[in-house]
Design a protein around this nucleic acid. Structure first.
Length: 473
DNA sequence: ATGTCC
């Protein structure tokens, strides 16, 4: 069914599915491959049938079933003849993660973890449908959609240096508020500055291992240091934008006569009004998510300031893992402009790319890969393998191995909480069922997933962090 | 992921 290309590289052959324009490629170890559902491989093949796809339909080692495209999927389309598809980005547009480093060390912070988590849980609203502490005006919401984290910094949430340590400097060009429906605005307006639910979290961590001394120094990380990770996205706004535009693009599929093996791959040819409209709305949602993470960072800093007056929380980096971008890549020796869809995949550009903020341009893009609740997270640095193999992309996390429904049957919320407590990890959640759905056991081991991208030099391991306290939706 | 089905 799959052909081995190399260690950690498998091919989905053209014969897997009728209409494939390119083969599929799955970057994964033999061991992790045994945990990938057949449906995920079929989705990789389905994506390969889309017009204008370049080289391969790809999946990362954390791949699992998604809407149309697999989560952990990467697909690039040429500007001339290609398409854009909301399924290739996902419902939570610019779901992403940022890491802040403190100047505190474990010995000082550990006695305060419980109180820190209580305050973070209180000060950063979370949960399904959670509303935030701030009420932005309609005009401010437009600014959020067009200028993302840059708006948030100007509004007093953070410092300009934060923007110099974000992918895209904290906002994407091309966000079009006029392509965002009234319904999406209505959902998004009260939710700015909220964490959300599911696998989203706000976590206090300790750096427990350094793999690359030089890179760790440049990222400002050392063993025993306390870090904070914020994982969230564009909330109801992004979800509604995806829903709205899926309808538009479903009509476009008929209008432009595109044949699809799965309705969930709804898309529009690049350059058409439908494609432009989705891109503008998607960029607006991406900017909302960057503003959201920026505001949450400011409130996190306030909580730390109350516990440790004068403590610093500097942004190491902020990455998107659900977004489509126009980028230039080398395709068989010539540079081409492509629309790269990453869904549950992070950009992992190697050294020198102009898109990487100045602070890290000579090193490569920092890649932050959160583990599941209670398991280690990793900081890596984009490498040459990513540029050669994956259009500059790496995996985004551990990846589920069972459904939420199944997880709830097996694991009880209070048991999960107690088990974590015994390991010295304090967890606060809005609902116990969230803890059963997010039990560490329902995810692939993050270590094994990270090992694959490290071995292929897609991204090199820099540091590993372990959780001390978590606030969840 | 998500006012987990207007």
């Amino acid at each position: 069914m799959l052909n081995r290309v190399d260690d950690n590289i498998f091919e989905v052959p053209m014969g897997h599915q009728k209409g494939m324009r390119v083969p599929g490629r799955i970057f994964i170890s033999d061991k992790l491959l045994t945990q990938v559902e057949p449906g995920t491989i079929d989705q990789v093949a389905n994506v390969a049938t889309l017009p204008g796809i370049v080289k391969y339909s790809m999946a990362m080692p954390d791949a699992h079933l998604g809407y149309g495209f697999p989560i952990g999927g990467v697909a690039a389309f040429r500007e001339d003849g290609g398409v854009i598809s909301p399924g290739g980005v996902g419902f939570d547009i610019n779901c992403g993660v940022r890491m802040l480093r403190t100047d505190l060390f474990a010995k000082d912070a550990v006695p305060m973890i419980s109180s820190l988590v209580d305050d973070l849980f209180h000060d950063v609203p979370s949960g399904v449908g959670a509303k935030g502490r701030l009420r932005v005006s309609e005009h401010e919401l437009d600014e959020v959609f067009t200028r993302g984290a840059a708006w948030a910094v100007e509004a007093g949430y953070g410092v300009p240096e934060d923007l110099e340590h974000c992918e895209e400097n904290g906002f994407m060009e091309g966000g079009k508020p006029d392509q965002v429906s009234l319904k999406a605005r209505k959902r998004g307006r009260p939710q700015l500055g909220t964490l959300g639910s599911g696998n989203h979290f706000l976590e206090i961590q300790r750096v427990d291992r350094i793999f690359d001394d030089g890179l760790a120094r440049r990222f400002g990380l050392s063993e025993g240091q306390i870090t904070v990770m914020i994982h969230c996205g564009s909330r109801g706004a992004g979800h509604q934008i995806c829903t709205d535009h899926l309808q538009v693009l479903s009509r476009a599929v008929r209008k432009y006569g595109i044949e699809l093996p799965d309705k969930q791959l709804a898309c529009a040819p690049l350059g058409t009004p439908e494609a432009e409209s989705y891109f503008g709305a998607m960029a607006a949602a991406a900017n909302y998510a960057w503003a959201n993470r920026q505001i949450i960072s400011a409130w996190t800093r306030e909580v730390f300031e109350r516990h440790f007056p004068g403590a610093s929380l500097d942004l190491v980096y902020d990455i998107a893992h659900n977004v489509a971008k126009v980028e230039e890549h080398s395709v068989d020796g010539t540079m081409e402009r492509l629309v790269v869809h990453r869904k549950g995949a992070t950009r992992a550009f190697g050294p020198g790319r102009r898109e990487i903020p100045q602070a890290y341009r000579d090193l490569g893009q920092p890649v932050i890969i959160p583990g599941s609740m209670g398991t280690p997270s990793y900081v890596l640095c984009g490498g040459e393998g990513a540029m050669r193999l994956t259009f500059g992309s790496a995996c985004h996390g551990a990846g589920r191995i069972m459904s939420r429904t199944q997880a709830k049957k097996i694991y009880g919320g209070s048991e999960v909480k107690e088990a974590l407590m015994r390991r010295g990890i304090k967890v606060m959640a809005t609902h116990p069922k969230m803890l059963s759905e997010e039990a560490p056991e329902v995810y692939k081991p993050s270590d094994e997933v990270v090992e694959v991208v490290d071995q292929l030099n897609i991204a090199r391991k820099v540091a590993r962090v372990v959780p001390l306290g978590v606030s969840k939706g």
